[in-house]
Structures are given as structure tokens and as C-alpha cells.
Design a protein around this nucleic acid. Sequence first.
DNA 1: GTGAAAGCGCTAACAT
DNA 2: ATGTTAGCGCTTTCAC
Lengths: 343, 343
Amino acid sequence: MAVTMKAVAERAGVSLPTVSRVINDAAYVNPETRARVLAAIEALQYVPNQAAASLRSNTTKTLALLVPDIASSFWTTLLRGVEDEAMARGFHVFLGNTDDDPGKEARYIEGLIRRRNEGLLIAPTPKSIPLLRRLEQQGMRCVIVHRPFPGVEIDSVRSDAYTSAVILTQHLLAAGHRRIAFIGGEAEQRRLCAYHDTLTAAGYAPDPALVRIGTLSERVGEHLVEALLTLSPPPDAMFIGNNRLAAGALHALGKANAERATPIAIAAFYDSAALSTYAPPMIAAIQPAYEIGRVGARRLFDRLGGKPVESRHILLANQIMVIGGPEPRTNGIDPRDVSPYAV
Amino acid sequence: MAVTMKAVAERAGVSLPTVSRVINDAAYVNPETRARVLAAIEALQYVPNQAAASLRSNTTKTLALLVPDIASSFWTTLLRGVEDEAMARGFHVFLGNTDDDPGKEARYIEGLIRRRNEGLLIAPTPKSIPLLRRLEQQGMRCVIVHRPFPGVEIDSVRSDAYTSAVILTQHLLAAGHRRIAFIGGEAEQRRLCAYHDTLTAAGYAPDPALVRIGTLSERVGEHLVEALLTLSPPPDAMFIGNNRLAAGALHALGKANAERATPIAIAAFYDSAALSTYAPPMIAAIQPAYEIGRVGARRLFDRLGGKPVESRHILLANQIMVIGGPEPRTNGIDPRDVSPYAV
DNA sequence: GTGAAAGCGCTAACAT
DNA sequence: ATGTTAGCGCTTTCAC
């Protein structure tokens, strides 16, 4: 069919392995020979066949990232981190959308094994953990990103939601607020715990009426805020533990605060960098999505390279940012250069 | 290394091709034999080696999507359309981010040819058109998505920005507005033309002072609105021709309109479905991203299958939506089932 | 520094 | 309905 390495070899008057060496920089080749080979490649418009190379060498130089929702900016940012790290080593990244559906996930993984993918970064559902365990037997290294699976022996990289939630709650307390509401999703247990623990540690009893859990959508965030505002007295501060809920909640709070003498204070896990320009004043925890991707990929490469690795679970710090003045104040942590710490 | 088809064949007591037939449903196999083979596969945890299959059969069942910015919801939605269509045919989708950088694009395409990718959906820069022409010689079919390249003989699928811009402008005129400002990006020429043409056709001379072109960012959108508001008299309506500019512009307009007796009317190209809930009243043109992906992929498969195809350039209609009442009114076009029309 | 030979794991083309 | 044979295009191994 297409032009093969053999054609290049004949045209350059050399043998097959020599062409291979030139292409892969695999061994020293006489500059003259090399030039002849390159000329032949150029003349014939030769492009190597990766399938043949993979079959023989048993490497694909490809890794995969399986995320629940590629439409979310968090995951696309994480992808960028993975991509940058992979590209630098000549690897390609295969992206898959799982929608947190174990069936879809399993189908993707089957495909990845067929393709002899070398490594997998994944945000798994709890159900997929057993599946992941078996992967290593199939020759595929694996790193869990962003999601916590305590007790599981698979490598993971995520950010420290608990500590951030403590900081955010402490910030609200320090500003003098006492009726602090919490809005979050089912899965945000750590953040809720941090809220509870911090209030309790400061000597305040958390009011169950101020805690609202909902499914992750903008509408729900909006409605939960509206419901909390009907309380009397209403909360004097709100902690929103999820990005998606926050989008709706901030809208409702923006409107409400415009009509109040004393605005309701806001703390939120809020990633939408582009939109934070238009957020009301608040303190935000911003997750280092890019870094989670980069560090995750690096860990994968360390494993692939057989490097000894000191710990399996890596925690990164979130960026804490105060939004609302002309210049946002931050905790000085640029997510691009947080240094990972082990657990 | 890993377990091969040969091992499966031996264990099941059959020959290699029989195992291959079972795996690929390629020919009728005796149910008993088939069961034995499947049992062997299960017992040995066998997964076929795609590289070997590709090498022999010269097919990869993979297509690629190269977009400028995976962080934009427009492109991720388009990806979903491509994915759904591809998955249904057992194809995988390889995603690449070009950042509109011809160098990055070229590197991706090189990789795709190496991997013997069968088809490419791409949002190219003008510079990449010659590159694309050569692709078909390398055995890779290609469809341009979303971007207009008139006169180029490569298949394309995009939505009809001109017509939508006419409708939006007419809508503003019909509502009695005469000082209609235009905000857009450099690349939005068609939309600007439509605006011009519509005003002129209605007998109004476009005022150059009301036309502002800027780079695509939220901040710029905001600033352009603010600048227009300083005119006296200010515009009584604004047409924002780009999604990203609109995010900032809507913020500024929302604030301004809150303080005005007669609000400034708004028309915009605005895709952010999730956020449109929180947009001020306006008429919006929403591009059928999902459908562009789906139709683009279908076109690619038609070409791959050698089907005769009636036209190379496909135009889809945008959804026109009036946002602002309790229930948004639309033009009745659900982007999921617009029927493509040729040009 | 370069070449000859072998073979990676699978499917296509035949034969039966 | 199943088996035999050959070979896809490359890299590896080992000569020299």
C-alpha cells in the first residue's frame, strides 16, 4: 500500500535497520548515511507505521486520561497538565469521557488494553477500583487523579479539600460570622466534615438547619441559597463546597447582597477562573487542576521508568484566593508550582 | 510477553483463524466451538493486540478531532457529537489541542499518520489548508468543522452565522431600535457583514462609531461595552458577535441596565447553555456544536465507506432563542435534530 | 557503523 | 465450518 521503510532503504542504498536507527536516533549513524536516508524519507514522503513498530517493540508511547466530564473546565485544565508532561516525553494522550458510568469506563479500558496503552490516569468511581487492580497485571500502570480512595494501594494525586475547607471556615469565623450555612454535594463529605470540625473546635455548635446537600447543578445551587435566605434570621455567611453549585449560588447571592445593608459573606470551592472576574466578593478555594494532571503524569512516568517512588498518595494544596477588591489577594500559592507533599 | 491468540487457540483446541473469527464476528462459527474459544479467552484473560491486528488488516478504527481549545464548551460539546457517532460504529476518537498553532497542529497530524488514523475532523487555521490537502494522499480522510474556507475542496460542516446574524439584527430593528452597536472579533467578518447588510437593506446607515472589534476575551467584551456606554446618545441596542466577548459584555450590560429606565436591548452569539440561565434578557444565536460534531463524523464515515456524497459543504442552522421571560422562547429548532442543508 | 535474519501477533487468502 | 500458509512493516539480535 503506502511507502514502507524498505522503499526508503532501497532508495538510500542502505539496509532496513539503518533507516530505523536514523528515525529513532537509536544508535550512531554516519552523518553522510544519515543524510542520504533523510533525503530518501523526504523524497518518498515516508511516514513510519506505528502499528508495526509497536508490534515489534512492544511500546506505544501513549497514555490515557479517563475523566467523568470533559465539558467541565476542571478536567480540561487537568488534561492540559497531563498533555504538557506527556508531550515533553514524546507521548500522546488518549482522552475518554466516562460520565461516571462504570459500563462506559470498562469499555474504554478494554480498548486501552487492546491498544497496549502504557499508562492510565483516571478519576474512577468506587466500583471501578477492582477493575483498576487487574490493570497492572495487563501491563498498564495506573494513577488515580483528584478522587480520594483511602486504603487503596493504587497511586493517587489529588488536592487537599479538607484543609482548604478548614481555612475557608476559619476565615468566615475570623470575620465575625456565626450563622454560617453549608451548601454541598453528596460526595463532598470531607468538606462538610471540615466545616463541622472547625465550627466545633472554635466552640460553636453547627446548626443542622444551615446545612443543605443537593445534586450538582447551577439551579440547585440557586434554589438552596434562596431556601436559606427565607430562614429568620438568615445566615450571615455561606460556604459553598462545589464549583457547579457555586455558579448558581453566587448568582442568587449577588442579587440578594445588592439589596442588603450587610452583605452575606461567601466562601466557595470555585474553579471557574474566567468567570471569577465577575463573581461577588468572596474567599475561594481553587483546585490546582493543571498541577494534578502534571504531577499525576509525572508519577506515571516514574512508575513506567521503574524509578523508586517514595509514596503512593500525593496531596497538593489548593490556592486560597480572596476575590472582591480591585486586586485579588491570594495565599501566594501559584498552582503551577505547588510542591506535592506525601501522606 | 502477554498471552497471545496462539495460547487461546491451543487451549480451545482450534486454529488461530477460528479464534480471530470469534473475536471479530467475522464469519459463522459453530456455537460449540465458539463457546470453547470464549471460555479459553476468559480463562486466560486474553485481550487482542490491536497493533498486530492493525498491521495486518491495515485499519485502526480510530479517528481524530483537532480543535483549538478543549477548554471551551463549544468544542467539548462538538467532541461529544463526534464521540457518540464514532462509538456507535466501534471507532475511537483521538483528541488534540492545537491552540491554533500551526506547529502543534503539524506535530499532531504527523502522529496521526504514523498511527494510521483513518479520519480527521479539524478546525484548521488558514495556514493548515495545504497540509490537509496532502493528507488524503496519505490515506486519511478529512472534514473541516465549524470554520469557513470558501473555495477549498475539502468537506466541511459548520453553522450559518450570516443568516443568524441577519435574524438577530432584524429582531433588534423590529423592536424599534436604531442605534445598534456591534461588538465582535477579527474573525467574525460574516457576522459584521450581516449586521451591515441588514441595517442597509432596512434603509439605515450603519454608524462606524458603533462598531467595535476586539480580541476574544471576557475583559475586552466588558471594556467595549463600557466604551460604547460613554457615547452620547448611547446605543439603544447591542449585538455581540462572539461567545467569549459576550460573557464580559453581558456582565457590564447587566449592571448598566439595572440602573436604566429603558434597558439596552441585547443580541448575542452565546453558547454557554449552563450560564444562559443567568444572562440578562436577550436574543441569542446558539450554535449547534453537538450536531456539527455528529454530522461531521457522519460525513467522514460516508467518505470512509466510499458512499457517494452529494455536497462537500454542509451548513447547519443556529438555534435562535429569546432569553428573559420565565420560559425562554425559541425558534423551535432543537439543535439535536436540525437537518443539514448543502451549499 | 552497518547488514542479514528472525519474528512480534494477528488476519487474508486460500483450501478443504 | 475450520485449518494451512503466508506475510503485514517494523525492531531486535547478532554478526562483521
